[in-house]
């Protein structure tokens, strides 16, 4: 390399000067090597993902401290923290949290099981597909919100209605992604399984299901997000307990700080559950990680 690019030494030292910022430690770029223009966005900034949110919080703190933000519009961070402490002390936050989390988990689990069973049935047999795929596609076209009046008539306004709404919402992404993954198994693997004279059972458990796992996990991530969205909707429409109810009540009394506490809890729930699914993904799809590095 060095001898080939000797003639470019002047040029390359200029180029490496251009990149002497955060991109790479100096050792990695010998001066004599010509720098190719880098097309990707470059290496990641440490804690890059945290910078944006931290900036927003900083703005919030500053805005509240200097009185730029009307507390009736947006409570100050410390007011929110106080409200947080107060709600925990009264036990209201924990109670409502447990109620909401139970609903969400129950709805998610039921939807997950049903969605997976439907997808596998439709994915592995033509008869199953003929019976199941149409109805699911029709259900997919109906917004979950639009079903709530009907579900209230059927199940009343109790837990049954709420869990059913969440489950119905969750079924769709699980079904769509799992079914799609099952149907798009590479035909080369089917050929392979045939030449190895694999049994139907081996073919399903060694080739089809593991091959569809990435699709299922993608569906799961969408499902978790949808699960929280549906939870918020059912709790704000008709509830006497839960985080959504707490927020609704706070709105009636103009307690911005309590509303914010509720929102922060939603954020944490969303982030934690997404993190859990990703962790699961990394565990189960460890064969994929080798591609990335």
């Amino acid at each position: 390399m060095a001898t080939i690019w000797d003639a470019d030494e002047v040029k390359s030292s200029r180029a490496s000067g251009r990149e002497s910022g955060y991109t790479l430690p100096a050792v990695a770029r010998p001066v004599t090597a010509r720098n190719r223009r880098r097309l990707g966005p470059g290496p990641a900034i440490p804690f890059g993902l945290q910078i944006g949110p931290a900036l927003l919080v900083l703005l919030w703190v500053a805005g509240s401290a200097f009185g730029w933000i009307d507390p009736r519009i947006l409570s100050a961070p410390w007011t929110v923290i106080e409200a947080f402490a107060r709600l925990i002390e009264q036990g209201r936050l924990q109670d409502n949290f447990v109620t909401s989390a139970t609903r969400a988990l129950l709805g998610l689990s039921i939807g997950l099981v049903i969605g997976t069973i439907l997808a596998v049935t439709a994915g592995l047999s033509r008869i199953g597909e003929a019976l199941i795929d149409g109805p699911v596609q029709i259900k997919r076209a109906i917004p979950t919100l639009a079903l709530i009046p009907l579900l209230i008539l059927w199940f009343g306004i109790g837990e049954g209605m709420k869990v059913t709404t969440i489950a119905l919402a969750v079924i769709i992404p699980i079904y769509i992604h799992t079914h799609n993954a099952l149907r798009s198994i590479d035909s080369r693997y089917v050929e392979l399984a045939e030449t190895l004279r694999m049994s139907q059972k081996d073919f399903i458990f060694q080739v089809v299901l593991p091959g569809a796992l990435p699709g299922f996990l993608l569906g799961l991530r969408f499902a978790v997000t949808l699960c929280w969205v549906s939870l918020v909707v059912v709790e704000q429409i008709n509830a006497t307990s839960g985080l959504g109810y707490m927020i609704e009540l706070a709105r009636n009394y103009g307690q911005t700080d309590v509303i914010l506490v509720g929102l922060v809890v939603y954020v944490l729930l969303g982030l934690v559950s997404d993190g859990l699914v990703r962790l699961l993904e990394r565990r189960v799809l460890s064969w994929r990680r080798t591609l990335a590095n």
């Binding site: 392979l192 190895l196 004279r197 060694q206 064969w287």
Partner: peptide
């Protein structure tokens, strides 16, 4: 013969199975 094996142009290993699992598939 029933007992034949095929080697394809691509190795056609299942990426989600380890090397030994691929060899002993079925």
């Amino acid at each position: 013969p029933e007992n034949l094996s095929v080697v394809f142009q691509d190795a056609r290993l299942l990426p989600w199975r380890t090397v030994i699992q691929n060899v002993t598939l079925g």
